[in-house]
């Protein structure tokens, strides 16, 4: 800001100076923001660069680039950490849980949004309660329960609780979205002779795609990244998911840093790809998920 006395004397030049300082300020701000963003991204950049190094380079020049980019680190990490198995397990568990979450969530949301029945408030209240319970406090109770029904060390030990804990947010996001549809569209379908299943499959599901996308992204990231449930419910090496096998690998190979880095880099590629493609939806979805869940 220039002072009024100067601007009274040289109106034209002061306007130029004002714009100049504003530009300078804007430049400094942009520079500061860029630095902040790079600092935020640095741990990740460091991860991907370190994964190409030798162990010596990792110790002696942690900030430098590798002399030779060792792609073989990735291949070796894949093999040594048995990441094929872990990727497969994570993919199976995530996809199955995702499918069940979306189908059950959408169907439940359709019923809650469109039908009147006794006990509706009770049902909604029950699901609401689920969003208040801190997920980690249930590790011991769930372990005891799954031990009793004998499903520890199965895919179901992850798929079922993942789905159960994700259902409330899935239902509430979908109900909020379906409530905005006008009633007329179903009445038209009713006259055409579609039953409730027909309306659900041919009308509600396609119309709810944006809400389902939000729910799906959120669920995908939670399932793919989950560590605590896998840690407590899975001990069979053949069933270990990616985060669990990474944590074990990092402890076991604690001095072979390049391999651990390469294994981690491989493990984060799917979520980073998903993020690069869908960043706006991921940001909105995860923020909504944080507020509601």
């Amino acid at each position: 800001m220039t002072t009024p006395s100067i601007s009274a004397v040289h109106p034209a030049s002061s306007a130029g100076a004002g714009a100049g300082t504003r530009k300078l300020k804007g430049g400094i701000l942009s520079l500061g923001l860029t630095v902040y963003a790079l600092v935020t991204l640095y741990p990740l950049i460091w991860l991907f660069i370190s994964a190409f190094k030798t162990n010596e380079e990792f110790y002696s020049r942690p900030f430098g680039l590798p002399d030779v980019w060792n792609w073989s680190n990735y291949a070796r990490a894949w093999e040594v950490a048995d990441m094929g198995t872990a990727f497969m397990n994570s993919a199976i568990v995530t996809l199955l849980a995702l499918a069940i979450t979306l189908i059950m969530g959408a169907l439940c949301a359709y019923v809650i949004s469109r039908f009147q029945f006794r006990g509706k408030l009770l049902v909604m209240g029950t699901f609401m309660l689920g969003m208040l319970i801190p997920i980690h406090s249930t590790l011991v109770p769930l372990f005891i329960l799954m031990n009793k029904v004998d499903i520890l060390n199965t895919y179901a030990a992850l798929i079922l609780p993942y789905t159960a804990f994700e259902l409330p947010i899935a239902i509430f996001v979908c109900v909020a979205y379906m409530n905005t549809f006008p009633k007329e569209i179903e009445e038209a379908a009713m006259i055409d002779g579609s039953g409730y299943w027909g309306i659900f499959l041919r009308m509600m599901l396609p119309l709810s795609l944006p809400a389902l996308a939000t729910v799906g992204i959120l669920a995908f990231l939670r399932y793919w990244n989950d560590f605590s449930f896998a840690l407590v419910f899975i001990s069979d090496p053949k069933l270990k998911t990616l985060p669990l096998s990474l944590s074990i690998f990092a402890t076991g190979y604690s001095t072979d840093y390049k391999l651990t880095m390469a294994a981690m880099a491989l493990a984060v590629i799917p979520t980073i790809l998903a993020y690069l493609v869908l960043q706006e939806q991921v940001m909105k979805g995860m923020t909504a998920g944080a507020v509601k869940g």
Binding site: T34, L41, P43, N225, M283, M286
Partner: peptide, 30 residues
């Protein structure tokens, strides 16, 4: 800038934990 700042949220907490463990490591930490 927003997307960069949001990025860590999509990483598994195991990966975040191991990376920061290396950052803080007494001998090899950056």
């Amino acid at each position: 800038i927003r997307a960069s700042i949001f990025m860590p949220m999509v990483l598994s907490s195991v990966v975040v934990g191991i990376i920061w463990g290396y950052i803080y490591h007494p001998q090899i930490g950056i």
